[in-house]
Design a protein around this nucleic acid. Structure first.
Length: 500
RNA sequence: GGUCGGGUGGCCGAGCGGUUAGGCAGAGGUCUGCAAAACCUCGUACGGCGGUUCGAAUCCGCUCCCGACCUCCA
């Protein structure tokens, strides 16, 4: 099955055509590991997790590369004279830069695991590719798209712009505007020929903790360089998709394209995908101005912005309810609504898995509805990964599943084949594509099994009490369990329980 | 100031020329010892003002708000 992608470069939805039939190469800009990941990161990586999961689900062999930035990302607004983020943190905490990198990389992986984000196939680090980066700088110099000044090397944006007319193509900027609006107070601006030029190798002053020898100086690579170099190394000079947060369009991705042109004469990726921002209180979540909540705070509830903690799967579900290209405004109220919706979805999934088709059924209206809805789930996802629409169809299926379970709908209207399709596709889509796992599915540990049996025993005792019309005892058991977080639900074929 | 993207029913959030989005909350009903759950029914919403059209939330113009990027952030 084919699918469509909104290409940020053309600003249009395009039919996706892979470079090599059946294979997809995708590169996504990963985090700079100088502090805990924030939720905005999580949303971006959940979005790309959804996208790569779906591509795999459709049968593509995907190579997903997502880097770790562990050098070269500077604070402040200059290419030089500013401090490296990781270097700064290391200085403040009196640790080795690599201790900082290690700590936050591990923390990042923990958070990704909690949200059931699958690891990329390759997760390269900038510091692991110094040799390749230096080689690329040499190549760009050799081809004449960069120049050296006092041990630093700058990319010649003007030359690139004049030659291709493409500088600013991705972000919708014009180089004349970039000239006019560049800030006056850039340090070392006199080293640059043009204000929009950017450093690809930066000479380090002696206080700089992270520096490496190079033909030009003891220094470090410019931030944008690593992505050009590592994407080329692992995916080739041209690959299918490049992704990242929309705030990376400029200057990061624009400069990346320029560098690739400088190094090999053409742009790296054919499709560019950008995820939109996560907002809180109507404003972008930002590390720098405090309008933020960390993933762990959101899970624990330890934040003034929320009334309680939310399960990571609830948060993931909440994020999937909006399209990746739309902004999403986080609020406590919206999360509570998501929590209930998520439970409803997962409960239906459990019920469906427990159901059996009696064996006889006709192609009734229900049959065609279910087939139609299942088809639509895929159509929606294939239209630029429209998870919210796919979820809407899934919820219509929830309705049908519950009706079958509750007896309001009959299996007689449903062929065994269609039921089988539903029973396979519905749960598979939820877990494989949406990456939503049932928190009540605790596997088969001995403890969990004991718990199950004890609850079943209490339900049996309550059943006896009910038969004897001993409502006091019956309600006592129900209320006591409720207080422990176990909700009982009576239906005509017995009592079920859910662990909250 | 420049560039881009938004303003959708109580809340979140799809849709982007004609069809019910969906979730949560709310109202009524069925079922039930009661409750919960489930099922059925119920909302005619698209910032404002004009215009195009047989028909606009969806296209065009003006206008008012909001946000992002332009400077480190996904």
């Amino acid at each position: 099955m084919s699918f469509k992608i909104y290409n940020s470069l053309s600003r249009k939805k395009e039919e996706f055509k892979p470079l090599h039939e059946g294979f997809i190469g995708i590169y996504v800009c990963g985090p700079t590991v100088y502090s805990d990941v924030h939720l905005g990161n999580v949303r971006t990586f959940i979005s790309f997790d959804l996208i790569t999961r779906y591509m795999r689900h459709l049968g593509y062999k995907v190579r997903y590369v997502r880097n770790i930035t562990d050098v070269g990302h500077l604070e402040g607004d200059a290419d030089t004279g500013a401090e490296d983020k990781i270097g700064k943190k290391a200085r403040l905490e009196q640790l080795e830069p690599m201790e900082i990198v290690e700590r936050y990389t591990l923390g990042f992986h923990d958070v990704m695991r909690m949200f059931n984000v699958l690891p990329p196939n390759i997760e390269p680090r900038a510091t692991g590719h110094l040799i390749e980066q230096i080689e690329t700088v040499k190549e760009i110099l050799k081809r004449g798209y960069a120049y050296e000044v006092n041990g630093s090397v700058y990319f010649d944006t003007l030359k690139y712009a004049e030659e291709t007319g493409k500088y600013g193509e991705l972000s919708g900027r014009k180089i004349e505007e970039l000239i006019a609006l560049s800030r006056e107070d850039l340090k070392n601006q006199d080293e640059k020929r043009h204000p929009s030029d950017f450093a690809i190798w930066i000479k380090a002053d002696p206080s700089h903790l992270m520096r490496w020898p190079s033909p030009w100086s003891v220094g470090f690579p410019g931030w944008h360089l690593e992505c050009s170099v590592m994407s080329t190394k692992y995916l080739g000079e041209t690959f299918d998709i490049h992704g990242g947060g929309s705030d990376l369009k400029f200057p990061h991705h624009e400069n990346e394209i320029a560098q690739n042109y400088g190094a090999c004469g053409h742009a790296p990726a054919r499709y560019w995908m950008h995820t939109n921002m996560l907002l809180m209180n109507g404003r972008k979540m930002s590390k720098s101005d405090g309008n933020t909540i960390t993933p762990l705070e959101l899970i624990s509830g330890n934040s003034p912005h929320i009334s309680k903690g939310y399960h990571p799967m609830v948060i993931r579900f909440f994020m999937l309810q909006s399209h990746y290209r739309s902004t999403l405004d986080l609020s406590d109220e919206a999360l509570q609504a998501a929590e209930k919706g998520f439970k409803r979805l997962m409960e239906a999934r459990r019920h469906l898995l427990d159901m059996k088709h009696p064996g006889r059924g006709e192609k009734g209206e229900l049959d065609s509805e279910i087939n139609r809805l299942l088809d639509q789930v895929y159509e929606e996802m294939s239209d630029d990964f429209n998870a919210p629409k796919a979820l809407a169809r899934l919820f219509e299926l929830v309705n049908r599943i519950n009706a079958l379970k509750g007896g309001q709908a009959s299996f007689e209207q449903l062929t065994p084949e269609t039921f089988q399709r539903l029973q396979q596709t519905f749960p598979a889509f939820i877990s494989d594509v949406l990456g939503l796992e049932d928190p009540t599915d605790k596997g088969g540990s001995g403890q969990a099994e004991l718990l199950h049996k004890l609850i079943e025993l209490l339900i049996e005792l309550r059943q006896k009490a009910r038969q004897e019309k001993n409502w006091a005892m019956s309600d006592f058991i129900r209320d006591a369990l409720k207080n422990m977080g176990v909700t009982l639900k009576d239906s005509k074929d017995g009592t079920e329980w859910v662990l909250e």
